[in-house]
Amino acid sequence: MTNKTDELIKRKITDEDVIAGEALNWDIFSSGGSLLLSKGHVIKSDSQITQLIARGACYYCSPEEVTATKKTSRDPNEPAVSFLIINTLLDHLKNAFAILHEENDPTFINRIMRIALDIQYACDENTDAMVGSIQLNQEAPNFLAHPLHNAILCEAACRRQGKGPLDRLPILVAALTQNIGMLSIQEQVFHQEEALSEEQQTIIDEHPQTGHDLLVSHGVTEKRWLTAVRQHHERIDGSGYPAGISGADLSEDAKLLAITDNYTALIRPRAYRSRILHKDALRQMLQQRGSSIDGDLVTLLINAIGIYSPGSLIVLTSGETGIVTRLTKKLDEPQIRLISDARGHASEIGEETPTGGDTGLTIKNMLCAKENQHLLKGLRTVWPMQHPLARDEM
């Protein structure tokens, strides 16, 4: 490399300079000066970074950039882009709910529509990453995590059906707003161990209609959106509420929302019970299919998120622990990344690898993520993505 001026500093690549899943800030050269990678290229895995370091790869930058890099180098424990996207969407939803009862703010519909479109945009890149990241989110309050989780599951299921983005949009906005009629008590009830008060029970019983009316007051006219919110607690056998309607009188959107809502409620722990594992939630739903919930739509959801959902912690017969990262054509043989050794000690995250078949990696059982937080550190490269939402400032 002979055309660099004395003002530029040659620096060897380190794992602090290059982040898997992010665009390069510089041109990368070999030790002999040949261009290896251009600025803006996205490196997909840590193993590629290791190879660059081993080859003595370098880049050139100004003294000012060296100083800035030292000040802004990323914390190795910072979340992966997919987790940052989830956090951004949660913030957007929180801000939308904050103006729900402000009569003079006309932006509520636009805010909800934007979140739904952003979900679609992120799932265009990696649906499994979005399902897994919201599944692993343990920190967000339930009144935000629950509707976002529902919306992402609806997006995954409707994609599986082959529906186009415009056809998927009404159920996404319905999922995001299905519980706006009980926002005032939702978090309180989620953490409450004692029986519901009479007032709380009334609010819950009426929240589908209350939510519908709130949407109308904000100018929502989309029939599928309104119907799904009003009917999401109805059941095909007539056992639901508020109107006790059944069968063909229920919209397809409402029937799918009933399933995703049920699933999400089961796998998120409450004050009076522990979280139910993914496989056990599916088992409970399979037992209800054809009676209170639609059997075909239960099967659709299972096909969309797998027997071992992205984000699930699994234990192999070898004793090693992995995290499910990607579905395959065989729903019980997902792609995983190993995150612990056979003794249960956290290890550096491994390369994505298949299970089942001739791989020698056989899944034995599942673990609860909340009870194994020590294994979930350093997951920033588990789903390499490059997405503007992760850098969106509220």
Rank of each mutant, 00 (worst) to 15 (best):
M130R: 12
I180P: 10
A140K: 08
D167I: 02
V189K: 08
E193G: 13
L93V: 08
N87E: 15
P106Q: 12
G132S: 11
T107K: 08
T127V: 14
E198F: 06
F83H: 15
E198P: 00
L100K: 09
N126W: 02
I171D: 03
H92S: 13
P165H: 01
L166C: 02
N110A: 13
K94A: 12
L153F: 11
T210S: 12
S184H: 03
E103K: 14
Q120K: 12
A129Q: 13
I152P: 05
N104P: 02
A129F: 08
H101F: 03
A98Y: 04
A98I: 02
I109H: 10
R114N: 13
T127Q: 14
K94W: 00
F97K: 06
C123N: 14
H207N: 11
I203Y: 07
L136F: 00
I171T: 04
D167N: 08
R160M: 08
I112G: 13
I180K: 09
V173G: 03
S197D: 08
K94H: 12
T210N: 14
R114T: 14
L176G: 08
L100V: 01
E102Q: 13
I152D: 05
V189S: 09
I85Y: 02
H191Q: 14
H149C: 02
I171L: 13
P208L: 07
T210C: 00
L100Q: 11
L89K: 04
H191V: 10
L153T: 02
C154D: 12
L196W: 10
D105H: 07
R159A: 05
G162W: 01
L84E: 15
N137S: 11
G164S: 12
C154W: 02
H101L: 14
D124N: 15
Q200N: 05
Q178C: 08
S197G: 11
Q178L: 02
M182N: 11
E193L: 04
N104D: 15
K163L: 15
L100Y: 00
G211L: 06
L169A: 06
L153N: 05
R111Q: 15
R114K: 14
P106W: 01
A175P: 05
Y121Q: 14
E206M: 12
V189I: 15
E102Y: 03
Q138W: 00
L84F: 00
I204H: 01
I109C: 06
L169H: 13
A98E: 12
A98T: 09
E155S: 01
D91E: 13
H149R: 15
E193W: 05
P170F: 00
E206G: 01
Q120T: 03
S197N: 01
I171Y: 07
H101P: 07
R160Y: 00
H191A: 11
E193P: 02
D105V: 06
C123H: 00
A98W: 00
Q201E: 14
N126Q: 04
I86Y: 04
I171V: 14
Q201I: 01
N95W: 00
A98C: 12
A122C: 07
A122G: 07
I115L: 04
I109K: 15
A151M: 09
T177P: 05
T88H: 11
E199A: 10
H207E: 12
Q178D: 03
E155Q: 14
D91G: 15
E206C: 10
R168T: 02
N87A: 11
A122Q: 13
E155I: 01
E193T: 15
Q178T: 03
P147M: 05
M182H: 10
I134M: 10
L176M: 12
P141Q: 07
T177M: 05
A175E: 02
F190K: 13
I99Y: 03
L89E: 08
D167Y: 01
